[in-house]
Amino acid sequence: MLLALQLLCDGVLLGGTYVLIAQSLNLIFGVMGVVNLAHGSFIVLAGLFTVWFAAHAAINPLLAIPIAFVVLFGVGALLQPVLLEPLMGLGAQQAELLSLMLTFGLDYVLIELGLQVFGSSYVSLPYLQSTWSVAGLTISKSLLVGSAFAAALALLLSFWLNHTGFGKTLLAASQSEVGAVSIGINVRLVRLVAFAIGVGLAGAAGVLLILVEPMAAETADDFTILGFVLIALGGLGDYRGVAIASVLLGIAQSAVGFAIGGDAESVLPFVLLILFMALWPQRFRRAA
């Protein structure tokens, strides 16, 4: 019983760290129809930067969150009009395919950049390495902090989308572009902001994930795929569904990791992705 609770607790916390990966990707995919294959490389660059930052500036690594967010928001705001916006006029289907190819290339450029700047080895961040014991459960402090911050940022995003004027125009544009244009919403601006915020939040996610697991430049695509699995599971543009999916995947991974082993745990998202693609390909379509 206690073991089951321990696995559940680990799973929920692991899932909490996933929420931000999935929601930031969901924002970009939902609003722009852009399959952002470079998402994981933004996450990893932010994670590697955090290790460098913590080593060189003797301050709390959590302070890297606003830095990573602002820098990557800026990067997103610069890349979107140059690389992605020109594809948007080509019709949804072609835009989706071309953006896939384009972000695939961008992913490689960013991974190479990471290799050149930060090297190829796995790095981790020694921060909050101790555990708490609560009612017989062992809770890793770094996992708890990473999970809590990621969940808080995801909630903040959700609040911004649902309760502010600009957030609502973003939801509107993702649900019907023609409808949004018909009431004078500047969808170009909306797409730019959605992409910049999505990439900025990927940066924040990277800072939090490095607290929890080691990273190398080449692990970038693991995060991208994880994000897509969660969107498929939770529903494109469905922020609540994706949050639930994140926690469920965390629990499933924690259980599989215990029952079979660490390799099975890390391969689980990929197996799920293949299963979803085969069984429910329509889960990857934009919301109608």
């Binding site: 609502k168 939801l171 509107a172 649900q175 019907s176 023609v178 409808g179 949004a180 018909s182 009431i183 543009g237 919301a287 109608a288």
Partner: peptide, 16 residues
Amino acid sequence: HVPSGRELFPRLTVAD
């Protein structure tokens, strides 16, 4: 402009 096919935002409320 009321576009053909209505083009509503299915997940937003009437008030939205």
